[in-house]
């Protein structure tokens, strides 16, 4: 068995495009669930909003407006990105206004429902590509700025990326670095303290004269914007978007990553993502190799795909039961976690 191949595959996935997408979405979830205690089970909706706004602007709107703005297609991405963030903000308001005054599980059900509504509705809207989604040179404006030399593959030690992937990966990690810094700055501030207070007991914070509704809304919006950033990276990196990519399981993957890395830790999502994707891809690759070489006889190659999800499901259960603060957890804090 060639473990080396599995290892490099795993490594390049753990810091690659997929990891960046999940990390951004999970960082948003960390703000909402980790710090403010908001049960957002529909983070995927925010991701989808990012991907679809960009996809629609670049592929549908830009060609339509070239008649009165000839260079629309050269700049469209840079207009579409703030627009996507604006739509994300509106979605947060739409979700938050009815539910943030209600019990926590209402938000859970409404957010997961919204994710599904979005997916089902988009499927039947032809301008958004219907079931097929949108594909094309969605990231063209972004790749036009690619400073890497025009070669097929870029080698970085153990891992190799294509020229466009490396550009996405580098920008992705810079953005992540900045957003981690932002999270850190926000969460050590009195604002972050009041969010953590709301997570522990909203009534107590109300009694201390804080407008908790406003702060929960701010947390929902901020976390949603992070999710939308994930969606923007997704569509730029893959240059396509399909409705069925945005299933509820995406959000549950993010929860697994968050709990694996440490809830309410600035670096929790980062550590969680790297470990999660490394282990996932490594196991999968090893299994594929083992099945192909006949080492494992009872599985067919096609049965390996679902194993990824089974592993995530089992991991989520076990983590939640045994170590809710897995890696960055604080011993003292863990001892208190009687919730």
């Amino acid at each position: 068995m060639d473990l080396g191949f599995a290892l490099t595959q795993a490594l390049s996935q753990a810091i690659g495009v997929t990891a960046i997408i999940y990390l951004l979405a999970t960082m948003g979830l960390n703000i909402q669930f980790g710090y403010a205690g908001l049960l957002n089970f529909g983070q995927v909706a925010f991701v989808a909003v990012g991907s679809y706004t960009i996809g629609a602007c670049v592929m549908t709107v830009a060609p339509a407006i070239t008649s009165w703005w000839p260079s629309a297609e050269s700049y469209i991405l840079w207009i579409a990105i703030p627009l996507a963030l604006l739509v994300s903000l509106l979605l947060s308001l739409l979700l938050g206004i009815p539910t943030l005054r209600l019990r926590a599980d209402y938000l859970a059900i409404v957010t997961i429902a919204t994710g599904e509504i979005f997916r089902l509705v988009v499927k039947s809207i032809e301008p958004l590509g219907g079931v097929q989604g949108i594909s094309g040179k969605i990231g063209a404006n972004f790749y036009a700025l690619n400073p890497f030399p025009d070669v097929d593959r870029v080698e970085l030690g153990l891992v190799t990326y294509t020229r466009s992937d490396i550009w996405v990966v580098v920008v992705g990690w810079i953005v992540i670095g900045l957003l981690l810094l932002l999270t850190w700055a926000l969460m050590r501030s009195p604002w972050g303290r009041s969010l953590r207070g709301i997570r522990e007991d909203e009534d107590a914070v109300l009694a201390l004269g804080k407008n908790t509704y406003l702060r929960k809304m701010q947390a929902l919006i901020l976390g949603g914007l992070f999710g939308t950033m994930a969606g923007i990276f997704w569509v730029v990196a893959k240059q396509s978007v399909q409705p069925d990519s945005f299933v509820p399981d995406f959000t549950f993957f993010c929860y697994t990553i968050l709990i694996l890395g440490g809830v309410a830790r600035v670096l929790g999502p980062l550590i969680g993502t790297i470990i999660f994707w490394f282990l996932l891809v490594f196991t999968e690759q090893t299994l594929i190799t083992a099945v192909e070489s006949g080492t494992i006889g009872f599985l067919e190659l096609t049965q390996v795909g679902p194993i990824r999800f089974i592993l995530v499901g089992v991991a989520l259960m076990l983590l939640m039961i045994f170590r809710p603060q897995w890696i960055l957890g604080d011993r003292k804090e863990l001892a208190l976690d009687a919730r």
Binding site: D249, Y255, P306, F309, G313, M317, R339
Partner: peptide, 16 residues
């Protein structure tokens, strides 16, 4: 809330 997340993990496990 922890139990709710456990049920999500269980659902995923059974489904796949």
């Amino acid at each position: 809330i922890a139990a709710m997340i456990v049920s999500i993990g269980l659902a995923m496990t059974i489904r796949y």
